[in-house]
């Protein structure tokens, strides 16, 4: 099993519903977020191109945040999920330093927090909150090992990319381009 997410940059409108939906679903405190939206503009008026991406932890296959964690609080779980066990985390910040995507933050309670691919929902057969909220339905989630999953299907038919593959982290957050 290998969970992954794909986001269609051609449909994403940058509305940020994925961000609020995550905030309410996961009780992310006001002033913090587990996901965010990036707008990239290129060109000179009126020859312009725009890409909009909803970003979050890439649930990396080769996760430096797991490697550098001194307590094992950051760890891999079934499906390749990279998770943080709050009561093992000492809040040293090493994993924050190690993430090239700046996907982690220090929760006001002290431990480190980040996107979990909504493990608690996925476990019971649901989809992540952001995926289910997105009004443009531009987010695809599922198991890459299952050729019938939403994400496998869309990655088969569409061109995609990952962010900074050169950092060598093996990201599993794809962007359809």
């Amino acid at each position: 099993m290998r969970y992954a997410m794909a986001i269609d940059t051609k449909k994403c409108v940058g509305c940020s519903d994925c961000v609020v939906a995550c905030q309410t679903e996961n009780h992310v405190p006001i002033g913090y977020c587990r996901d965010w939206v990036v707008e990239v503009m290129d060109g000179t008026y009126p020859q312009l191109e725009m890409e909009i991406r909803s970003e979050r932890c890439n649930q990396c296959g080769n996760a430096p945040c797991v490697r550098c964690c001194p307590t094992g609080a950051s760890h891999f779980e079934e499906g390749g999920l990279v998770l943080v066990t709050a009561d093992k985390c000492i809040g040293c910040g090493a994993c924050i330093q190690s993430c090239p995507y700046d996907a982690r933050y220090s929760h006001p309670d002290g431990h480190v927090d980040k996107c979990t691919f909504c493990n608690h929902r996925v476990e019971v057969g649901g989809k992540p909150a952001c995926v289910e909220a997105c009004p443009t339905k531009c987010m695809y989630f599922g198991d890459l090992d299952d050729p019938g999953s939403d994400v496998s299907k869309v990655l088969k038919t569409r061109k995609s990319k990952t962010l900074i593959p050169e950092a060598g982290t093996e990201p599993y957050l794809y962007f359809l381009i």
Binding site: W36, V37, V38, E39, M41, G93, Y105
Partner: peptide, 20 residues
């Protein structure tokens, strides 16, 4: 070229640059 976060991400000590 413009590359900006439009969802207001301002995680303390992470943004605008890391200072953990």
């Amino acid at each position: 070229r413009e590359e900006i976060i439009i969802s207001g991400r301002m995680n303390p000590n992470i943004d605008p640059y890391l200072h953990i």
